[in-house]
Structure formats: structure tokens, C-alpha cells
């Protein structure tokens, strides 16, 4: 058994069992597990492995995972498949997940950057405590100064990448 899981189970051997018996989605169970244990020493992949074994009625805690083949991750998937997964996130997946994906990892960022934007108007407002970027009706407010400034500096390059003609008066407003 994994030493991390061993450590968690020694604190309360029933806690993982409680989680998967709760009937909640697995990710919620993981969050509850982390809150209960007050530690995040088990990552989701490891938790999920044990959770699914318990769910299948397999309670053998002595299983040695070290000899398992290396598991595939989402970033190892063919790009077509990765894109298909994204398309299943919802009709407006590009608008809803573009900025979420850009900060996950480089593979996610590369995919999100390949999505051709459909917005027609960008406006940028600067307030004393925030910078607000608006894509058509979608508004993103940056309150973390460092992050906002970093993005602000990237903006012309991003527009250039997207082949946008930067027309100051028509597309950007500075208040």
C-alpha cells in the first residue's frame, strides 16, 4: 500500500470508506477527504485509484502500485482527442474555458491558443484597484496587480498573434 495512503488510514482507517460510501461524485469526495484529513499529501490520481478499487468491492490495501505501468495523462492524449474532450465541455466551451485552460499548463495553453476567438470587440478599463478586460459581453476583472500588469503587457503581443488590427480608438477604451 502507498505509504501516503497508509499514513492517512492510520489516522482514521474508515475515512476513505466513508467518502466513497457517501455517493457523492469522486472529486467532491476527494475534497471532503482532504478537508477531513487536514492534509493534501495524497493527490487526486492516487485517491481515485483507491476509491475506484473500493467501489469495485476490492478492499485489499496491500496492493503494491510501484509495479504498475506509468499511467497516461491528459497531456499525453492525441490533440484531436483533447480537442474533442473540450468540445464536450459545452456549447460555449471556448468562451468559458479559454482563460482557465491558459493557466493549467503549457499543453492546455497551446490548445486554448489554437481556438480562434469569436468576439468582435475588446475594451479595457483601468480602475485604481483593478483592470477590467471586456470581450464582447464577457468581463474579466483582474484585482491582483502583478497579474493584471503582466497580462496588460502581454496584450499587444496576444492581439498580434491573433492577427488583430489594433485600432486604439475603436477597440480599446481607457478610462
Amino acid at each position: 500500500m502507498s505509504s501516503k495512503l497508509d499514513e492517512a488510514c492510520l489516522k482514521d482507517p474508515k475515512i476513505i470508506y466513508y467518502e466513497f460510501r457517501s455517493g457523492l461524485p469522486i472529486f467532491e469526495c476527494y475534497k471532503n477527504f482532504c478537508n477531513r484529513m487536514e492534509l493534501d499529501s495524497i493527490n487526486f490520481i492516487e485517491f481515485e485509484f483507491w476509491f475506484q478499487r473500493f467501489s469495485a468491492g476490492n478492499f485489499d490495501l496491500d496492493y503494491d502500485r510501484s509495479k504498475d505501468p506509468k499511467y497516461r495523462t491528459i497531456t499525453d492524449m492525441p490533440v484531436d482527442v483533447f480537442q474533442k474532450i473540450c468540445e464536450n465541455l459545452g456549447e460555449d466551451y471556448q468562451e468559458d474555458y479559454r482563460f482557465v485552460f491558459r493557466h493549467v499548463c503549457k499543453s492546455f495553453r497551446a490548445l486554448a491558443d489554437s481556438w480562434i476567438p469569436t468576439f468582435t470587440e475588446i475594451s479595457i478599463k483601468s480602475k485604481s484597484d483593478a483592470i477590467i478586460v471586456k470581450f464582447d459581453d464577457e468581463e474579466i476583472e483582474y484585482t491582483d496587480g502583478n497579474r493584471a500588469i503582466k497580462h496588460w503587457n502581454q496584450f499587444p503581443a496576444i492581439l498580434e498573434k491573433l492577427n488583430w488590427a489594433l485600432k486604439e480608438d475603436a477597440m480599446c477604451s481607457f478610462n
Partner: peptide, 30 residues
């Protein structure tokens, strides 16, 4: 199988934040 598999993964990821996506897919912090 491709369709159902992709939909299953998407259902797991739906509504997740950046940090939650990293946790879900076992992606290291930046």
C-alpha cells in the same frame, strides 16, 4: 467509444477552476 470516453472526461472537468483541473488530471503546479 471515443465519443463516450471524451464526454466522460469532459463531465469530470466541467465547471472546474484552473487549480481543480490540475488536481483532477494530476498536472504539477506551474
Amino acid at each position: 467509444l471515443i465519443n463516450y470516453g471524451c464526454k466522460t472526461v469532459a463531465n469530470s472537468a466541467k465547471g472546474k477552476s484552473t487549480e481543480e483541473m490540475r488536481e483532477l488530471f494530476g498536472i504539477p503546479e506551474p
